[in-house]
């Protein structure tokens, strides 16, 4: 039974791995260029599934505030959550001070002190990221400490106010929205190339293309897999 639970907990990840392996296999082992592009799509989509699986929170809902929750949060959060950065930094670049206060230390070269602070207790497994570790994590970055304490406090208050509402993690969704667009852009350029290759070579099978290129390069096909009716070098 535990094994089954373990398997169900990781099912998404294992499927991601399987899909990724299939996509990669199509790309490497199949010779038709269109099929290669489809393999790349499968490969990339599997990564989307992985990212989205990371962001899912059990019992959660889509990261869109319910109307009443938004109202509550806006009223509540207004008094202690200033726009980040506006307070301390002003506009533009800041010089990272390599030695001084914690905030700069985060971004500075001397990360050691903070790294020590933020490290979770020895032996704390990731699965059970304990309260303490979470608090340490939140205290480390340069978002002013009060701000964070405030956020944590707000979280506690809100947890009381809206106990049932759990939202899934929005960040992976944002990343994958970008990645999907990148994927389609790659597909478009790849397919345009394939059309050109077809026009220039008369084929989109990789072995025939390699043979034609070999003929152009050496004047003959060095590999054993020679092709009977190859339009040599055009």
């Amino acid at each position: 039974m535990d094994l089954l639970a373990f398997a169900i907990e990781r099912y998404n990840y294992w499927i991601f791995i399987t899909l990724m392996m299939m996509g990669l296999f199509i790309v490497i082992a199949r010779g038709n260029l269109i099929k290669k592009m489809i393999g790349l799509n499968v490969f990339q989509t599997s990564v989307f599934i992985y990212y989205i699986s990371i962001g899912k929170i059990a019992g959660g809902t889509a990261p869109i505030y319910l109307p009443e929750d938004l109202k509550a949060r806006m009223a509540h959060g207004g008094d202690h959550a200033p726009l980040p950065g506006k307070d301390a930094i002003g506009a533009g670049a800041i010089r990272v001070d390599e030695s001084l206060h914690g905030g700069a230390g985060f971004a500075g070269n001397d990360l050691q002190s903070l790294a020590g602070k933020a490290a979770p207790p020895e032996g704390a497994a990731l699965h059970s990221a304990p309260e303490g570790a979470a608090n340490d994590i939140l205290a480390a970055p340069p978002l002013t400490i009060e701000d964070h304490a405030g956020a944590a406090g707000a979280a506690a208050d809100l947890a009381k106010a809206a106990a049932e509402i759990v939202y899934s993690n929005p960040l992976p969704h944002v990343l994958i929205l970008t990645a999907i667009v990148v994927g389609i852009a790659t597909t478009a350029v790849g397919l345009a190339l394939i059309v050109r290759i077809r026009e220039a070579y008369g084929t989109i099978e990789e072995d025939e293309l390699e043979a034609a290129d070999d003929i152009a390069e050496f004047g003959y096909v060095p590999s054993k897999r020679g092709l009977p009716e190859q339009r040599a070098g055009a």
Partner: peptide, 18 residues
């Protein structure tokens, strides 16, 4: 003068892009 940190859109890292 040492390393520079620039905060995109004024959102301090790690919340924003740096």
């Amino acid at each position: 003068a040492g390393p520079i940190s620039y905060h995109m859109g004024d959102f301090a890292p790690p919340i924003g892009i740096e």
